[in-house]
């Protein structure tokens, strides 16, 4: 069984981005870029499935600018077997990404596509669901546990009131939530080995996918900042403030 893992190159999760002063976007130039944290979890889960003998091949794919190959090398250093870079603009929309992935699924014929639940830059939380829709496959989103058996995937999902388990016929789409696993660090020898693993580069247009954006960004603004608060000296003072000043208790 083959697993396809889409990985996105995003601003590292530790960095607080700043809005550009002209309000056209956020400043990303010169910032540390990393693999989207949820995608690391997806890569890890796919590798574990291969290590357990459930999967035979793990293919990482990224859609974006040339530098996204660094993200793919990271995925291969973690253990992915090979990777595909589909060149496009920086941060294409989920609809376009889902269409590219659909084209790759038709070419590679994986039994499972394992995505992150959400990219931490656009915070869309949409691509996996959209790809599942386009393919007519079942979807197990926000997965915290995955078991593959008898041609089905049993997925425990994080929902608002707790957890839910669904069973999906393969092929299927799964999106990883935070608690699925703890991704491994790539060791130095594996980073060296990853440099020799195959990385194919193709143009989005060669897949016949229209990447035109449906959403135009009119402006980007800084959220309202909270006015500075105070440090209180004691519990009694806090209770007094909450009662008499804030009037919330």
């Amino acid at each position: 069984m083959k697993i396809l893992v889409p990985v996105k190159r995003v601003v590292d999760y530790n960095i607080k981005v700043l809005v550009k002063s002209d309000g056209t976007g956020v400043e990303t130039a010169g910032l540390k870029m990393s693999m989207n944290p949820f995608d690391e979890i997806a890569v890890e889960e796919a590798i574990r499935l291969r290590e357990k003998g459930v999967a035979t091949e793990v293919i990482a794919v990224s859609i974006g600018v040339q530098q996204a190959q660094d993200t793919l090398r990271t995925a291969m250093a973690m253990g992915a077997d090979r990777s595909i870079l589909v060149l496009s603009d920086e941060s294409p929309e989920p609809l376009a990404v889902a269409k590219v992935l659909k084209a790759l699924v038709e070419r590679e014929k994986p039994d499972l596509v394992f995505l992150g639940k959400q990219a931490i830059d656009d915070d869309m939380n949409a691509t996996g669901q959209m790809l599942a829709g386009l393919l007519g496959w079942g979807q197990g989103t926000f997965a915290s546990k995955v078991e593959i058996a008898d041609g089905r995937a049993e997925v425990s999902r994080e929902i608002d009131g707790g957890t839910e388990t669904v069973s999906l016929a393969l092929p299927a789409i799964i999106t990883a939530d935070l608690r699925l696993n703890e991704p491994r660090y790539a060791s130095l020898p594996n980073i060296m080995k990853a440099k020799k693993k195959p990385l194919e580069t193709i143009q989005a247009a060669d897949l016949g996918v229209d990447m035109t954006r449906r959403l135009t960004t009119v402006s980007v603004a800084e959220p309202a900042t909270r006015k500075a608060g105070i440090t209180v000296g004691s519990v009694a003072e806090l209770v007094g403030k909450l009662r008499n000043e804030a009037k919330v208790i």
């Binding site: 981005v17 700043l18 931490i120 830059d121 915070d123 960004t217 980007v220 603004a221 800084e222 959220p223």
Partner: peptide, 8 residues
């Protein structure tokens, strides 16, 4: 977007 650090 970006964990609420910007509003698009």
């Amino acid at each position: 977007i970006y964990a609420g650090n910007a509003l698009a």
